[in-house]
């Protein structure tokens, strides 16, 4: 391992140890205050808030890529570890799974953040390899352009086929079914799960008409099959990359919603305590 590598390994270990210590300290304070009939919620609440604010700062870190404020990967490691710790601190603090009133909204937003975070973390660990295994890289922003380009080439091939052979088979197949397929990513859910629906749908159609094809038409059908293979990859890449982006659409807005309600919560608690 390089020096940098070992340094970062040590940093990750320290993170883990820090998390355990933090949980232990919060547990001790909670217990001792409870025995003294004090309000441990005050301490656990502030610790929880500090932790959540730190977690939310990841968003700020992402905007500060021009200044050396630590590597994003170290921030994410700290984020995930603290994210899990926060669940424990929350449990000490709230003590109820389904509170009532506005606190239910607060709890639901917290669960949304935590759950989406955990799901997102797992996705980030598992999904990239599936994308890599596709064999060629699909750029999310370029999917519409890539499909438009593919459609253009397919339509040119089909027109040429009609001109050369006078046969209507491929033009009809394209008009009746394949145009729909190549218009945009299809079978998103199935592609995500990996059922192979996209592939079998298009190849089944091509197989069905293959008995009507002769000579030159077969060459054009082969070209269609090549495009279909690529389209199957695009469908899968679209589904996986979409999911990799989607979860953040829950995680981040829920974070902000949660922080706003926390502010409200603080004011109420303050008024109540005073």
């Amino acid at each position: 391992m390089t020096f940098q590598g070992s340094l970062r390994f040590a940093l990750r270990m320290a993170l883990g140890a820090g998390a355990v210590v933090l949980v232990a300290v919060v547990a001790l304070i909670d217990r001792s205050q409870r025995l003294d009939l004090l309000h441990p919620e005050l301490v656990t609440g502030w610790v929880l808030l500090a932790a959540v604010v730190f977690l939310a700062l990841l968003n700020v870190r992402k905007k500060l890529s021009m200044v050396p404020v630590g590597r994003a990967s170290d921030w994410v490691a700290a984020h995930v570890v603290l994210g899990v710790v926060v669940i424990v601190i929350y449990a000490f603090h709230a003590r109820a799974i389904w509170p009532s009133g506005y606190e239910l909204a607060l709890a639901l937003l917290f669960y949304a953040v935590i759950l989406s975070g955990l799901i997102g973390y797992l996705l980030q660990r598992m999904a990239p390899a599936s994308l890599a295994n596709l064999g060629y890289e699909v750029i999310w922003e370029r999917i519409p352009a890539e499909l438009a380009d593919m459609r253009e080439r397919i339509e040119a091939s089909i027109l040429e086929c009609a001109r050369e052979t006078g046969s209507e088979v491929l033009p009809r197949l394209y008009r009746e079914e394949l145009a729909w397929y190549f218009r945009r990513p299809r079978f998103v859910l199935a592609s995500l799960v990996g059922t192979g629906a996209s592939s079998s749908w298009v190849h089944h159609r091509l197989d069905s008409v293959s008995i009507y094809l002769r000579g030159k038409e077969i060459e054009h059908a082969t070209f269609l099959r090549e495009c279909a293979r690529r389209k199957v990859h695009i469908d899968r890449a679209y589904a996986i990359q979409g999911l990799l982006k989607c979860w953040l659409l829950v995680h981040v807005p829920a974070t902000y919603g949660f922080l706003v309600l926390v502010l409200w919560h603080l004011i109420l608690v303050h008024v109540y305590l005073v």
Binding site: K62, S65, M66, Q124, A127, P128, A129, L131, A132, L244
Partner: peptide
């Protein structure tokens, strides 16, 4: 390393902002 890359484009954005 495509086995790790989540295609978030944070690298591209960081490059742009510097």
């Amino acid at each position: 390393d495509l086995d790790r890359c989540v295609r978030c484009d944070d690298c591209v954005r960081a490059c742009a902002s510097t």
